[in-house]
């Protein structure tokens, strides 16, 4: 008995990066804010590259609270969507490049704690899906800058899940 030969690493990476790209590339605000995502396996780190326009207090200077909230909410939505998509894309049930393959969850509420002021430099965030049911999900997000253990903001959000997507992939029939 032998297990099937694993896929070539490039094919795996391409499929996963394509799934991530369809979640982020078409969202205008993600580009406007300068937010990108690092992927290691299924772990995502959101990165907000520093730009002068993100400043809310020019005297300190410090990042704008609204820019921080937008960054955290984006990290939460992309994490939740990527996790929803992961199994369907890995099994081939859904082709993420098909139109209609992606439906984003809707934010019900969002609570952000500002723990210290955001410095004028890059910021990082990781979101964790605490619970994801058929209709509702609860997600926690942590954001930091220089030091992973010194968070500058965190947030908890609830989302309304989109209806399940019909199979579109090659093995989905």
């Amino acid at each position: 008995m032998s297990r099937p030969r694993p896929e070539p690493v490039q094919a795996v990476k391409q499929r996963r990066d394509a799934a991530l790209r369809v979640l982020t590339a078409r969202v205008p605000l993600i580009g406007f804010m300068g937010i990108g995502f690092d992927r290691r396996g299924d772990e995502l780190t959101a990165v907000m590259t520093y730009d002068e326009k993100l400043i809310g207090n020019p005297y300190l200077p410090a990042l704008h609270g609204g820019a921080i909230a937008t960054f955290l909410e984006t990290a939460a939505i992309v994490e939740l969507s990527f996790q929803m998509l992961w199994e369907d894309v890995e099994s081939g049930r859904i082709d993420p490049l098909e139109p209609g393959a992606i439906r984003l969850p809707k934010t019900i509420d969002f609570t952000v704690d500002y723990l210290r002021s955001g410095l004028p430099r890059d910021a990082y965030a990781r979101a964790r899906v605490i619970r994801s049911g058929r209709r509702y999900a609860s997600v926690h997000v942590e954001a930091w800058q220089d030091n992973r253990d010194r968070l500058f903001a965190q947030a908890t959000a609830h989302f309304l899940m989109p209806p399940p997507v019909e199979a579109t992939g090659a093995t989905g029939a």
Partner: peptide, 27 residues
């Protein structure tokens, strides 16, 4: 504004922009 859209299917502005507006207004 187009560049502030969070859902490209519907054209709805990103929720974060609504919180940015209310945060600034609160301050």
């Amino acid at each position: 504004a187009e560049e502030l859209v969070g859902d490209p299917e519907s054209g709805v502005i990103h929720g974060g922009m609504v919180s940015a507006l209310m945060d600034t207004c609160g301050g």
